[in-house]
């Protein structure tokens, strides 16, 4: 059918299709509230009216009970390592250089972990139950973002026993239950 002789390598076998859609993203009510506090240097959780557990960052509900949460609870600057991974590949759009630690951290006063970076530590000595504290950016750089906390660094405190992880109160952990 074609007048010119075209070799099969010249045939179209693939096309580049840009699919870019613009959205006006809205943080949910609970997330908005949480980020406004983070903007002021505070990490807040929400307590479930059913089971009493404290969620952080709160999403406005207790997923276990399916109940809305509204009671705000201030959380500590200290946290416990629930688990972690040493990541050897870069995160897109993030300047951090591998290898770095991504840890599941339970802040004191909360009953659930969130994910954050750990630094100022020897990667090989990071361990489950380890105590850490938040290192914040300078106040003038604070925004509505969890990375106002630059990372968490180890504390010189005794480890939290496994069964106590996720149950450390706001008053902290001094090696005594």
């Amino acid at each position: 059918m074609s007048e010119e002789t075209t070799s099969s390598e010249d045939d179209i076998t693939a096309i580049e299709t840009p699919v870019y859609l613009t959205y006006n993203f809205t943080a949910g009510e609970a997330t908005t509230r949480f980020l406004h506090q983070v903007r002021k240097g505070k990490v807040m959780g929400q307590r479930c009216p059913g089971c009493g557990n404290v969620y952080a960052p709160a999403r406005g509900s207790c997923a276990a009970c399916g109940l809305p949460t509204s009671e705000e609870v201030e959380l500590g600057n200290k946290a416990t390592v629930q688990s972690f991974t040493i990541v050897w590949i870069p995160i897109p759009n993030n300047p951090i250089q591998p290898p770095y630690i991504v840890a599941n951290l339970v802040p004191d006063g909360a009953n659930i972990s969130f994910i954050h970076l750990m630094s100022e530590c020897d990667n090989d000595s990071v361990h489950i139950g380890q105590r850490v504290e938040a290192v914040w950016k300078p106040e003038e750089e604070w925004d509505y973002a969890m990375d106002n906390i630059r990372y968490f660094r180890p504390l010189d405190e005794p480890d939290v026993p496994i069964e106590m992880i996720g149950k450390v109160p706001l008053s902290g952990w001094e090696g005594k239950a």
Binding site: E29, A30, R59, G60, S61, G66, P68
Partner: peptide
């Protein structure tokens, strides 16, 4: 619906539908 995220949109209608028949949740 501005502020509402998925959960905040869904929870009230589920609650209403369930309570109409005396049920709590899933």
């Amino acid at each position: 619906a501005g502020a509402c995220n998925e959960v905040e949109l869904i929870m009230p209608v589920i609650e209403q539908a369930m309570q109409a028949v005396g049920l709590n949740n899933s």
